[in-house]
């Protein structure tokens, strides 16, 4: 076919050669972690889009839509409050059990909801992951951010219930609430990164995760008060080995922090929060590293 449209190949110069051209390096190792993290801010619009997408998909598929975001946690809390508070008569340190439970359920439902969704964040988006490149970390990260909407709704419900049942809110507690909130985000992100990557590699992680999360809930003082334990967890507790070990489970600090801040009257659990931040940071960083390392294999595995 000599001569067929051969003339068209004399290309003119690039339209805008001054355009900023970043160079991408593709290697077996998938690049350095620092470069990976540094590339993330450029994708902030995509991240926002993914957050919005998750919410939309959640809301769009049901008749009640947005209503489920309020209804689901409320139904959970009501049932649990009936069973554990009224029937099992678990102690609640003198607070109404409903509020006592809700103050801990608020961070817990966020943690467990985001973590379990994270196990399907890569599998569920395989149509994207196998076709186009973007930092896969955005997928679990979008869940961490998107979960905040439901968190906010539950928080507002708590505020309403608290005002209705006790006639007030502990304002001093709200001042340091950002502390356990930051720990919550760090822990959830770390757990999500681990679970997302593992679930793509091993299909059974998805099933195992729901049981693990249930177990973890009973391990943390969500439905029962910390005061049930023999050791005290105050601002300056003696460093008993059990206290230290238990405090390394970051959700203990989160849950107890939220409870004391929202119900008022307690001191800031510095020890629990401090230990929690140490282990949550380890969880977050190892999760990040593991995720980035497994990212390059993802398309082959999905």
């Amino acid at each position: 076919m000599p001569g067929v449209r051969a003339g068209i190949c004399h290309l003119p110069a690039v339209a805008n050669p001054l355009r900023d051209k970043t160079e991408i390096l593709i290697t077996p190792e998938g690049g350095r972690l620092r470069a990976y993290v540094a590339s993330l801010p450029a994708f902030h619009e995509l991240l926002a889009f993914l957050v919005w997408k998750d919410l939309k998909v959640q809301v769009a598929q049901t008749t009640l839509g947005f209503g489920w975001l309020v209804l689901r946690p409320m139904l959970n809390v009501l049932v649990m409050s009936l069973v554990f508070g009224k029937l099992a008569r678990l102690p609640s340190d003198g607070h109404p059990y409903l509020l006592f439970l809700l103050s801990a359920w608020l961070p817990w439902s966020y943690f467990s909801g985001v973590s379990s969704k994270a196990t399907s964040s890569l599998l569920g988006n395989s149509s994207l992951v196998t076709k186009v490149y973007f930092p896969r970390l955005l997928l679990p990260t979008s869940l961490v951010l998107g979960g905040l909407l439901e968190f906010l709704i539950v928080f507002l419900v708590f505020v309403a219930l608290s005002l209705a049942m006790t006639g007030g809110l502990p304002l001093a507690g709200l001042l340091w609430l950002p502390l356990p909130l930051a720990l919550l985000l760090l822990t959830t992100a770390g757990a999500s990164y681990w679970l997302a990557a593992l679930a793509a590699q091993f299909r059974d992680v998805r099933n195992a995760a729901s049981y693990l999360l249930q177990l973890l809930m009973f391990l943390a003082p969500v439905i029962w008060p910390l005061s049930l334990l023999p050791q005290r967890f105050g601002a300056s507790a003696e460093s008993h080995w059990f206290t230290t070990l238990y405090g390394l489970y970051p959700m203990v600090g989160v849950v107890e922090g939220f409870r004391r801040a929202l119900l008022g009257g307690g001191e800031i659990p510095w020890q629990l929060l401090g230990l929690g931040f140490i282990s949550a940071t380890v969880l977050f960083i190892t999760g990040l590293v593991h995720f980035q390392r497994s990212e390059k294999r993802l398309a082959d595995e999905l």
């Binding site: 077996p28 076709k131 490149y133 082959d300």
Partner: peptide, 8 residues
């Protein structure tokens, strides 16, 4: 590989 879906 070029489109960074899979690593070399």
């Amino acid at each position: 590989i070029l489109s960074r879906i899979t690593a070399p």
